[in-house]
Design a binder for these strands. Structure first.
Lengths: 232, 232
DNA sequence: TCGAAATCTTGATGATTTCTTGATACCTTC
DNA sequence: GAAGGTATCAAGAAATCATCAAGATTTCGA
């Protein structure tokens, strides 16, 4: 695996050796630092570990649906994802793009076009690269590693609790209405059931806050929803 | 820039009436506000005038090369440009993308894919768009975050108080009659009950104003209604 | 596959916040 | 100074919220 210091890092996610070789040849020109993963889980790990500037993702992975990989990455990272796929159905493209992909190239594609599209995403990425770690006071939420620390101690959250916290944290400072949260986490069927959200907020507070009855992080906006205090 | 609850503005640049009609049909679903230009110069003017959120650009314009249009726009604007072209040569794509285009779709393309790619660019634009904040003297109303600051201090408003304030602020400088406000906030059934509005205005003033008996922000127009001081 | 543990969902209850209304005093305008 | 419009305080009603706990469901390890 090629390593470089200041070169843009590209993570290639594909299980076919032929494609791997092709991409390595196409991109190995001292302009990029190349990394690779052969399946979905490896891709998620590598995204955390090697912090790529662009991900080239094949949808047809052996262990996980490619769209699911996109969704998982988008939970905590805005890294540009360019899908490279043999699937040419419009529905596949729409699903991948709506899941969070930035571009979709159908194989076979030209190397020149691929390079140009990589340049587009890199040009755009120059803007901002926010750390996926939110710190406020004694609370630390590491979205990439899915870990939450309170006063340095890791605390364990249930999947639902974590999802709620992630939603609040990634919208720090903004009031999220009950319905927004319910739709995101539980789906449209629960839009009129704020109770289940309240229970989870209560549980979260007892785990996060020093004094759950005087919450510092998750504040109630009565009649509206909840808000995570802190900078976005 | 995407602001408030206005529809995203799309500028269609194409000289063929058939394509224009096709795009209008495809995009005219109350989700977008459509604008159009038939040639390169008109496109440049329209980009300034209608401040689109996305530009759909055909490369084959009668008066100017499409790539040149991209370059000119990029001299001062980062508005997303999606190229729609019959040209399928890789060289054309590379040139357009390197000139500053964000995406390149070869005709014919599916409406679903086009919409998905438009959503991608809008999604990206929303992430970096600064939220509209109303500032008047020492008062700051952040509609996106649903936050109100007075002299840097955050104050908490009840849902009704916030609704009234938002209505006044978004109509800053204009006199709103009692009945207008009552209808907006409480509904037609309360048209003849200005009392409930007065109570809320009083509460708002005590939270916002330095001296509630000499209000600076919310002024009474006796016999008419209330007015929020400041620029619209 | 089974059983234990963790998690989710729902119900009940008391606490808190917000809404609405009434009473009263104040202000502006004629 | 009178009259109509306006501001404020306060209190009961209504709505919203927090919490505990129990039963249902899912997950996970043996």
């Amino acid at each position: 695996m090629l390593m470089g210091n200041n070169l843009p890092r590209i993570l290639i996610v594909d299980d076919e050796p032929a494609i791997q070789r092709f991409l390595h040849t196409a991109l190995d020109n001292d302009e990029f630092s190349l990394h690779q993963a052969e399946n979905g889980h490896a891709a998620l790990t590598a995204t955390v570990a090697s912090k790529p500037d662009v991900i080239l993702l094949d949808l047809g992975l052996p262990d996980m649906d490619g769209v699911e990989v996109i969704r998982r990455i988008r939970q905590w990272s805005q890294v540009p994802i360019i899908v490279l796929s043999v699937r040419d159905r419009e529905d596949d493209k729409v699903k991948a793009l709506d899941a969070g992909a930035d571009d979709y190239l159908t194989k076979p594609f030209g190397v020149g076009e691929l390079l140009a599209r990589i340049r587009v995403t890199l040009r755009r990425a120059l803007q901002q690269a926010p750390e996926p770690v939110y710190r406020i006071d004694e609370l630390e939420v590491d979205l990439a590693r899915r870990r939450v620390l309170v006063r340095g101690e890791e605390i364990s959250l249930t999947p639902t609790e974590y999802d709620v916290l992630r939603l609040l944290v990634t919208n720090a400072g903004k009031v999220l209405t009950h319905r927004q949260i319910l739709k995101q986490i539980w789906g449209s069927a629960y839009l009129e059931q704020p109770h289940i959200l309240r229970v989870n907020i209560s549980n979260l507070r007892h785990k996060l806050e020093k004094d759950a009855s005087r919450p510092l992080y998750i504040v109630t906006e009565s009649g509206v929803g909840y808000r995570f205090k802190g900078q976005p």
